[in-house]
Write a protein that binds this DNA or RNA. Sequence first.
DNA 1: CGTCTCGTTGAGAGTTTTCAATGTAAGTGG
DNA 2: CCACTTACATTGAAAACTCTCAACGAGACG
Lengths: 172, 172
Amino acid sequence: MIGTFFVGKRLRKKQYLLQEGEVCRHLCFVADGLLRTYNVDEKGDEHMSVFGWEGWWISDFNSFLSLEPAVFNIDAIEDSSLLMISRADYEKLTLQVPIMDRYFRILFQNSLVTKERRLMSSITHTAAQKYIQLLGSNPEIIARIPQNMVASYLGIAPETLSRIKRNLASKR
Amino acid sequence: MIGTFFVGKRLRKKQYLLQEGEVCRHLCFVADGLLRTYNVDEKGDEHMSVFGWEGWWISDFNSFLSLEPAVFNIDAIEDSSLLMISRADYEKLTLQVPIMDRYFRILFQNSLVTKERRLMSSITHTAAQKYIQLLGSNPEIIARIPQNMVASYLGIAPETLSRIKRNLASKR
DNA sequence: CGTCTCGTTGAGAGTTTTCAATGTAAGTGG
DNA sequence: CCACTTACATTGAAAACTCTCAACGAGACG
């Protein structure tokens, strides 16, 4: 059964699932809770890559697939529970159950479209436009995630995001 | 045979493969040449999304998959020849030949990692850092593609890219 | 109550864009 | 082949945007 490939894991808020430099051994399905994938630059600033909550998959895909050291950290923003599959079992699963190839093909297909959209927003828009677009396309992120992390996700300073919100509010 | 699902097409330089607003009917394998995927904002400025040359796949994936109107334009930077598969045949192919699901799963997996990297570069780095990173990770783009398009690909003004290059050259 | 984290605000510094002008190379038609 | 046009790259100066730094405020938690 498919279920036998997965093992459960619980994470407390702030607990690491993965730290930069380790090899990411698992692809994780978020059954409950909220996690973030991010990296840290030379100055110590964090840059959010992905948020994952109920129903999402989370991992450092490059590390998981290539077995190179991870460039990302993953930790829990809220208490979370996961279903994890190892790289070897991921191979087995997709080989033994061809429909899983299809499942992941479609999953990655859709992730690619989403990522593409975020990338285009990032290179095309001003800080305020990016925030407004996020508000439209992904309000759950703004509702659920601390503002300094949202700012980092948009690639802007937290102070800039604060000012953008003030300006939008005053325009009503 | 797999080959029966594909039809060939030739494109002259500057010729459109797809225009914004149309539904993208095909997923295209670039057999030869060079194409670009980009959109155009209200001011008329173009923003490069993807460059595709020999061995790459090109399409407006969202439109191709959802049958919604394309937000991207695709045209040829150099004379090109393509192998195209329709949406219906893409479905048939992946259903009849499970290894194609696997092929595309792995293709999208890798694209996702690449896109992720570009996105993180975009939100974490300055204009100069982005250029230097591109120089390291994708020199072919810089060698083969006009500079105003490279600038757009990096999300910076062409003038800024010109100045960055001057500064880098003077530091030798 | 004190501490810690996170968000807000202001002012100045730094980066990038915009606009306009100039330079340069390539392509076209006579 | 040359003159002309067009597209693209470079440069300068000013404007716009965003960041940085520092201070302050509010809420959570022990």
